[in-house]
Protein backbone atom coordinates (compact mmCIF):
# COMPACT_ATOMS: atom_id res chain seq x y z
CA UNK A 1 0.00 0.00 0.00
CA UNK A 2 2.71 2.47 1.01
CA UNK A 3 4.79 1.69 -2.04
CA UNK A 4 1.79 2.27 -4.23
CA UNK A 5 1.08 5.59 -2.55
CA UNK A 6 4.65 6.76 -2.98
CA UNK A 7 4.73 5.76 -6.62
CA UNK A 8 1.48 7.54 -7.20
CA UNK A 9 2.76 10.66 -5.47
CA UNK A 10 5.85 10.79 -7.63
CA UNK A 11 3.84 10.33 -10.80
CA UNK A 12 1.49 13.12 -9.72
CA UNK A 13 4.37 15.50 -9.11
CA UNK A 14 5.76 14.75 -12.55
CA UNK A 15 2.35 15.38 -14.04
CA UNK A 16 2.23 18.66 -12.14
CA UNK A 17 5.50 19.76 -13.67
CA UNK A 18 4.30 18.85 -17.13
CA UNK A 19 1.28 20.99 -16.42
CA UNK A 20 3.52 23.85 -15.33
CA UNK A 21 5.35 23.69 -18.64
CA UNK A 22 2.07 23.94 -20.53
CA UNK A 23 0.82 26.83 -18.44
CA UNK A 24 4.14 28.62 -18.54
CA UNK A 25 4.36 28.68 -22.27
CA UNK A 26 0.70 29.48 -22.74
CA UNK A 27 0.87 32.48 -20.43
CA UNK A 28 4.16 33.81 -21.75
CA UNK A 29 3.29 33.39 -25.41
CA UNK A 30 -0.13 35.03 -25.17
CA UNK A 31 0.42 37.86 -22.79
CA UNK A 32 2.62 40.92 -22.84
CA UNK A 33 3.07 42.16 -19.28
CA UNK A 34 4.41 45.47 -20.54
CA UNK A 35 1.44 46.47 -22.70
CA UNK A 36 -0.21 48.36 -19.88
CA UNK A 37 2.95 50.42 -19.37
CA UNK A 38 2.88 51.45 -23.02
CA UNK A 39 -0.71 52.59 -22.94
CA UNK A 40 -0.11 55.21 -20.26
CA UNK A 41 -0.43 58.94 -20.65
CA UNK A 42 1.93 60.69 -20.08
CA UNK A 43 3.90 58.18 -22.10
CA UNK A 44 6.43 56.10 -20.22
CA UNK A 45 9.96 56.66 -21.56
CA UNK A 46 11.18 53.84 -23.77
CA UNK A 47 14.29 53.46 -21.57
CA UNK A 48 12.12 52.68 -18.57
CA UNK A 49 10.16 50.06 -20.50
CA UNK A 50 13.42 48.51 -21.69
CA UNK A 51 14.77 48.47 -18.16
CA UNK A 52 11.61 46.81 -16.91
CA UNK A 53 11.84 44.22 -19.64
CA UNK A 54 15.31 43.28 -18.45
CA UNK A 55 14.25 43.25 -14.82
CA UNK A 56 11.50 40.79 -15.54
CA UNK A 57 13.89 38.84 -17.72
CA UNK A 58 11.82 39.16 -20.87
CA UNK A 59 15.01 39.64 -22.84
CA UNK A 60 15.91 36.02 -22.23
CA UNK A 61 14.35 33.16 -24.20
CA UNK A 62 11.33 31.53 -22.54
CA UNK A 63 12.99 28.14 -22.21
CA UNK A 64 15.83 29.63 -20.21
CA UNK A 65 13.37 31.51 -18.03
CA UNK A 66 11.34 28.39 -17.42
CA UNK A 67 14.37 26.38 -16.41
CA UNK A 68 15.45 29.11 -14.01
CA UNK A 69 11.96 29.15 -12.56
CA UNK A 70 11.82 25.37 -12.20
CA UNK A 71 15.22 25.35 -10.52
CA UNK A 72 14.00 27.83 -7.94
CA UNK A 73 10.72 26.05 -7.34
CA UNK A 74 12.52 22.91 -6.33
CA UNK A 75 13.88 24.93 -3.42
CA UNK A 76 10.36 26.27 -2.74
CA UNK A 77 11.21 29.68 -4.13
CA UNK A 78 8.51 30.88 -6.49
CA UNK A 79 10.53 33.80 -7.80
CA UNK A 80 9.46 37.42 -8.07
CA UNK A 81 6.28 38.89 -9.43
CA UNK A 82 6.27 41.49 -12.19
CA UNK A 83 6.88 44.25 -9.69
CA UNK A 84 9.93 42.50 -8.34
CA UNK A 85 8.41 41.43 -5.04
CA UNK A 86 8.94 37.85 -3.88
CA UNK A 87 5.92 35.71 -4.74
CA UNK A 88 6.41 33.60 -1.63
CA UNK A 89 5.41 36.38 0.74
CA UNK A 90 2.12 37.04 -0.98
CA UNK A 91 1.50 33.37 -1.49
CA UNK A 92 1.71 32.25 2.12
CA UNK A 93 -0.29 35.20 3.35
CA UNK A 94 -3.09 34.43 0.95
CA UNK A 95 -2.89 30.70 1.37
CA UNK A 96 -3.61 31.20 5.06
CA UNK A 97 -6.79 33.11 4.26
CA UNK A 98 -8.05 30.63 1.73
CA UNK A 99 -7.37 27.71 4.05
CA UNK A 100 -9.27 29.50 6.78
CA UNK A 101 -12.33 29.77 4.55
CA UNK A 102 -12.05 26.34 2.99
CA UNK A 103 -11.50 24.45 6.22
CA UNK A 104 -14.34 26.23 7.95
CA UNK A 105 -16.69 25.48 5.09
CA UNK A 106 -15.58 21.87 4.78
CA UNK A 107 -16.27 21.39 8.48
CA UNK A 108 -19.66 23.02 8.15
CA UNK A 109 -20.66 21.05 5.08
CA UNK A 110 -19.43 17.87 6.71
CA UNK A 111 -21.66 18.49 9.70
CA UNK A 112 -24.57 19.36 7.44
CA UNK A 113 -23.93 16.40 5.17
CA UNK A 114 -23.74 13.85 7.96
CA UNK A 115 -26.77 15.26 9.75
CA UNK A 116 -28.90 15.49 6.66
CA UNK A 117 -27.61 12.21 5.28
CA UNK A 118 -28.45 10.29 8.42
CA UNK A 119 -31.81 11.96 8.76
CA UNK A 120 -32.87 11.22 5.21
CA UNK A 121 -31.53 7.69 5.38
CA UNK A 122 -33.35 6.80 8.57
CA UNK A 123 -36.55 8.41 7.29
CA UNK A 124 -36.21 7.40 3.69
CA UNK A 125 -39.04 8.66 1.45
CA UNK A 126 -40.48 10.68 4.29
CA UNK A 127 -41.30 14.38 4.06
CA UNK A 128 -38.06 15.13 5.93
CA UNK A 129 -36.08 13.16 3.39
CA UNK A 130 -37.73 14.98 0.50
CA UNK A 131 -37.28 18.35 2.14
CA UNK A 132 -33.58 17.92 2.71
CA UNK A 133 -32.99 16.26 -0.62
CA UNK A 134 -34.80 19.12 -2.31
CA UNK A 135 -33.01 21.90 -0.46
CA UNK A 136 -29.66 20.22 -1.00
CA UNK A 137 -30.26 20.10 -4.73
CA UNK A 138 -31.60 23.63 -4.66
CA UNK A 139 -28.37 25.01 -3.23
CA UNK A 140 -26.36 22.78 -5.52
CA UNK A 141 -28.11 24.49 -8.44
CA UNK A 142 -27.43 28.07 -7.36
CA UNK A 143 -24.74 30.30 -8.73
CA UNK A 144 -22.68 31.08 -5.66
CA UNK A 145 -22.60 34.82 -6.24
CA UNK A 146 -26.40 34.84 -6.54
CA UNK A 147 -26.67 33.12 -3.21
CA UNK A 148 -24.02 35.50 -1.85
CA UNK A 149 -26.03 38.57 -2.81
CA UNK A 150 -29.02 37.16 -0.94
CA UNK A 151 -26.89 36.31 2.07
CA UNK A 152 -25.38 39.79 2.18
CA UNK A 153 -28.79 41.38 2.15
CA UNK A 154 -30.74 39.02 4.37
CA UNK A 155 -28.18 37.32 6.60
CA UNK A 156 -25.86 40.29 7.14
CA UNK A 157 -27.45 43.69 6.63
CA UNK A 158 -30.87 42.81 7.99
CA UNK A 159 -29.38 40.82 10.84
CA UNK A 160 -27.03 43.61 11.82
CA UNK A 161 -29.90 46.09 11.74
CA UNK A 162 -31.79 43.77 14.02
CA UNK A 163 -29.05 43.51 16.62
CA UNK A 164 -28.03 47.12 16.15
CA UNK A 165 -24.34 46.61 15.41
CA UNK A 166 -22.14 45.13 12.74
CA UNK A 167 -21.63 41.51 13.70
CA UNK A 168 -21.63 39.92 10.28
CA UNK A 169 -19.43 41.45 7.61
CA UNK A 170 -19.99 41.37 3.88
CA UNK A 171 -16.52 42.04 2.62
CA UNK A 172 -12.92 41.23 3.43
CA UNK A 173 -11.30 38.54 5.54
CA UNK A 174 -10.95 40.83 8.55
CA UNK A 175 -11.52 44.43 9.53
CA UNK A 176 -8.84 46.85 8.39
CA UNK A 177 -6.28 47.70 11.08
CA UNK A 178 -7.60 44.90 13.21
CA UNK A 179 -5.78 45.50 16.45
CA UNK A 180 -7.49 43.34 19.05
CA UNK A 181 -6.36 40.64 21.45
CA UNK A 182 -6.51 36.99 20.43
CA UNK A 183 -10.19 36.49 21.16
CA UNK A 184 -11.20 39.82 19.68
CA UNK A 185 -9.30 38.88 16.59
CA UNK A 186 -10.93 35.47 16.41
CA UNK A 187 -14.36 37.05 16.82
CA UNK A 188 -13.62 39.46 14.02
CA UNK A 189 -12.37 36.65 11.80
CA UNK A 190 -15.50 34.72 12.59
CA UNK A 191 -17.70 37.69 11.68
CA UNK A 192 -16.01 37.83 8.31
CA UNK A 193 -16.04 34.06 7.87
CA UNK A 194 -19.75 33.53 8.41
CA UNK A 195 -21.10 34.52 5.02
CA UNK A 196 -18.46 32.92 2.80
CA UNK A 197 -18.51 29.75 4.87
CA UNK A 198 -22.26 29.45 4.66
CA UNK A 199 -22.25 30.17 0.93
CA UNK A 200 -19.53 27.67 0.19
CA UNK A 201 -20.96 25.00 2.48
CA UNK A 202 -24.51 25.31 1.21
CA UNK A 203 -23.60 24.86 -2.41
CA UNK A 204 -21.40 21.86 -1.70
CA UNK A 205 -22.95 19.89 1.13
CA UNK A 206 -25.69 18.34 -1.02
CA UNK A 207 -23.38 15.98 -2.83
CA UNK A 208 -21.89 14.71 0.40
CA UNK A 209 -25.23 14.33 2.11
CA UNK A 210 -26.56 12.28 -0.80
CA UNK A 211 -23.51 10.17 -0.52
CA UNK A 212 -23.88 9.79 3.20
CA UNK A 213 -27.55 8.91 2.78
CA UNK A 214 -26.77 6.18 0.28
CA UNK A 215 -24.01 4.61 2.26
CA UNK A 216 -26.17 4.76 5.37
CA UNK A 217 -28.86 2.90 3.47
CA UNK A 218 -26.32 0.30 2.42
CA UNK A 219 -25.10 -0.20 5.92
CA UNK A 220 -28.58 -0.30 7.38
CA UNK A 221 -29.46 -3.04 4.93
CA UNK A 222 -26.39 -5.07 5.73
CA UNK A 223 -26.61 -8.35 7.53
CA UNK A 224 -24.76 -7.36 10.65
CA UNK A 225 -27.00 -4.36 11.29
CA UNK A 226 -30.03 -6.56 10.73
CA UNK A 227 -28.51 -8.99 13.17
CA UNK A 228 -27.93 -6.27 15.73
CA UNK A 229 -31.54 -5.21 15.43
CA UNK A 230 -32.73 -8.75 15.65
CA UNK A 231 -30.75 -9.12 18.84
CA UNK A 232 -32.81 -6.31 20.25
CA UNK A 233 -30.52 -3.32 19.98
CA UNK A 234 -32.47 -0.05 20.10
CA UNK A 235 -32.93 1.94 16.93
CA UNK A 236 -30.83 4.99 17.85
CA UNK A 237 -28.10 2.68 19.06
CA UNK A 238 -28.13 0.78 15.80
CA UNK A 239 -28.18 3.96 13.76
CA UNK A 240 -25.27 5.57 15.54
CA UNK A 241 -23.09 2.69 16.77
CA UNK A 242 -23.35 0.56 13.68
CA UNK A 243 -24.86 2.55 10.87
CA UNK A 244 -23.21 5.94 11.11
CA UNK A 245 -19.79 4.79 12.03
CA UNK A 246 -19.49 2.45 9.10
CA UNK A 247 -21.17 4.80 6.68
CA UNK A 248 -18.75 7.58 7.59
CA UNK A 249 -15.83 5.64 6.19
CA UNK A 250 -16.56 6.19 2.52
CA UNK A 251 -17.63 9.79 3.19
CA UNK A 252 -14.28 10.57 4.78
CA UNK A 253 -12.53 9.42 1.65
CA UNK A 254 -14.75 11.54 -0.55
CA UNK A 255 -14.26 14.57 1.64
CA UNK A 256 -10.50 14.19 1.44
CA UNK A 257 -10.67 14.04 -2.32
CA UNK A 258 -13.08 16.92 -2.59
CA UNK A 259 -11.02 19.12 -0.32
CA UNK A 260 -8.80 19.97 -3.24
CA UNK A 261 -11.81 20.71 -5.40
CA UNK A 262 -13.32 22.99 -2.77
CA UNK A 263 -9.98 24.73 -2.45
CA UNK A 264 -9.88 25.47 -6.15
CA UNK A 265 -13.58 26.23 -6.29
CA UNK A 266 -13.47 28.90 -3.62
CA UNK A 267 -12.32 31.45 -6.19
CA UNK A 268 -15.76 32.89 -6.88
CA UNK A 269 -16.66 32.92 -3.21
CA UNK A 270 -13.44 34.77 -2.39
CA UNK A 271 -14.15 37.24 -5.14
CA UNK A 272 -17.73 37.91 -4.06
CA UNK A 273 -16.78 38.50 -0.47
CA UNK A 274 -13.72 40.56 -1.26
CA UNK A 275 -11.19 38.15 0.24
CA UNK A 276 -7.69 38.87 -0.95
CA UNK A 277 -6.84 35.22 -1.03
CA UNK A 278 -5.65 32.61 -3.48
CA UNK A 279 -8.44 33.00 -6.00
CA UNK A 280 -7.92 36.68 -6.27
CA UNK A 281 -4.21 36.07 -6.69
CA UNK A 282 -4.86 33.87 -9.69
CA UNK A 283 -7.23 36.35 -11.28
CA UNK A 284 -4.79 39.20 -10.84
CA UNK A 285 -1.92 37.07 -12.06
CA UNK A 286 -3.79 36.18 -15.22
CA UNK A 287 -4.91 39.75 -15.73
CA UNK A 288 -1.33 41.02 -15.60
CA UNK A 289 0.12 37.98 -17.37
CA UNK A 290 2.28 37.52 -14.31
CA UNK A 291 3.43 34.02 -15.04
CA UNK A 292 5.18 33.46 -11.72
CA UNK A 293 2.02 34.29 -9.83
CA UNK A 294 -0.11 32.01 -11.99
CA UNK A 295 2.34 29.17 -11.65
CA UNK A 296 2.74 29.62 -7.91
CA UNK A 297 -1.03 29.38 -7.60
CA UNK A 298 -1.12 26.31 -9.77
CA UNK A 299 1.70 24.51 -7.99
CA UNK A 300 0.25 25.14 -4.55
CA UNK A 301 -3.27 24.17 -5.57
CA UNK A 302 -1.95 21.17 -7.46
CA UNK A 303 0.09 19.98 -4.50
CA UNK A 304 -2.89 20.35 -2.20
CA UNK A 305 -5.06 18.34 -4.57
CA UNK A 306 -2.39 15.66 -4.80
CA UNK A 307 -1.83 15.50 -1.06
CA UNK A 308 -5.49 15.17 -0.29
CA UNK A 309 -5.84 12.50 -2.95
CA UNK A 310 -3.10 10.62 -1.19
CA UNK A 311 -4.77 11.12 2.15
CA UNK A 312 -7.91 9.72 0.60
CA UNK A 313 -6.01 6.66 -0.61
CA UNK A 314 -4.46 6.14 2.78
CA UNK A 315 -7.69 6.73 4.66
CA UNK A 316 -9.43 4.29 2.40
CA UNK A 317 -6.88 1.68 3.12
CA UNK A 318 -6.77 2.34 6.84
CA UNK A 319 -10.44 2.84 7.55
CA UNK A 320 -12.08 0.25 5.41
CA UNK A 321 -11.87 -3.12 7.11
CA UNK A 322 -12.66 -4.88 3.86
CA UNK A 323 -9.49 -3.47 2.32
CA UNK A 324 -7.43 -4.33 5.37
CA UNK A 325 -8.35 -7.97 5.11
Amino acid sequence: MLGFVIRRFIVSIIVLFVASVLIYFTVTSFGDPLAELRSRNPPVPEAVIEQRRQEIGLDKPPVERYLAWAGDVVTLDFGDDLRGNPVNEVLWRRLGRTLRMVIASVVLSLVLAVGVGVLSATRQYSKTDYFFTFSGFLFLSMPVFWLAALLKEFAAIRFNELVGRTVIYTTGSESPRLDADFWGRMANYAGHLILPTIALALISYAAWSRYQRNSMLDVMESDYVKLARAKGAGRPRVVFRHGLRNALIPLTTIVAIDFGAVFGGAIITEQVFGWSAMGNLLIEGLRDYDVNIVLAWMMVTGVIVIIFNLIADLLYGVLDPRIRQ
Binding site: L16, I23, T26, V27, L286, G302, V305
Partner: peptide, 12 residues
Protein backbone atom coordinates in the same frame (compact mmCIF):
# COMPACT_ATOMS: atom_id res chain seq x y z
CA UNK B 1 -6.15 17.57 -16.89
CA UNK B 2 -7.17 16.93 -13.32
CA UNK B 3 -4.07 18.50 -11.86
CA UNK B 4 -4.22 21.63 -14.00
CA UNK B 5 -6.74 23.73 -12.12
CA UNK B 6 -9.58 23.99 -14.56
CA UNK B 7 -10.62 27.47 -13.56
CA UNK B 8 -7.12 28.78 -14.24
CA UNK B 9 -7.22 27.36 -17.71
CA UNK B 10 -10.76 28.59 -18.28
CA UNK B 11 -9.64 32.06 -17.36
CA UNK B 12 -6.59 31.89 -19.53
Amino acid sequence: FLVIPSLAVFLL
